[in-house]
Amino acid sequence: MSETTVVNNGVNVEALLGAREALSEAPEAAKFLWRASCEWKNGTHSKTSVEGYFGLGSEQVHKKTFSFDADHPEVFASEDNGATPVEIVLVGLASCLTAGIAAVAQHRDIQLRSCKATIEGGMDIQGILGVDADVRNGFDGINVHYDIDADATPDEIRALVAQSQKRSAVYDIVTNPTNVSVEVN
């Protein structure tokens, strides 16, 4: 092919690289604080909203407030007003990895045509129900499957997916321990 095509996955890589350079000069501006506020509705139903966060040295706000209903399904005798919290964790992981794939592809001049993930987390609920103390509460494993159509060799596509895991915040949060402190007023 003699014609050159411009790769466009809708990711502004120049801006990201510029930010990386600027932040390595001013590491304080790289400190972000992400927030969500959650309010109990009824039963296992809660509504969480996300609006402001701190970053680049000052308070920031999203273009609008996003809200998320969480609940449990009817098999748990709940009303099923929203996804379960563990499903929302899967949402976070899949969307983080997918965003990463698009960004890495853009940086490597690879045009994505389609990129679909299915994600599954296995869980033995004997853990959360306290039936068996040897069973952990959380997922016993997570499997992600990607179907990607892109202008690249299979190994280049595998490398995109691997690199995206390497740079993903949610992947890190899920695979590595994090200190969590919970206080009550």
Partner: peptide, 15 residues
Amino acid sequence: LFSGSLKNVCSLADL
């Protein structure tokens, strides 16, 4: 405690 990323670091190295 160990990270759950063993498969990915191996896959990166193989690639």
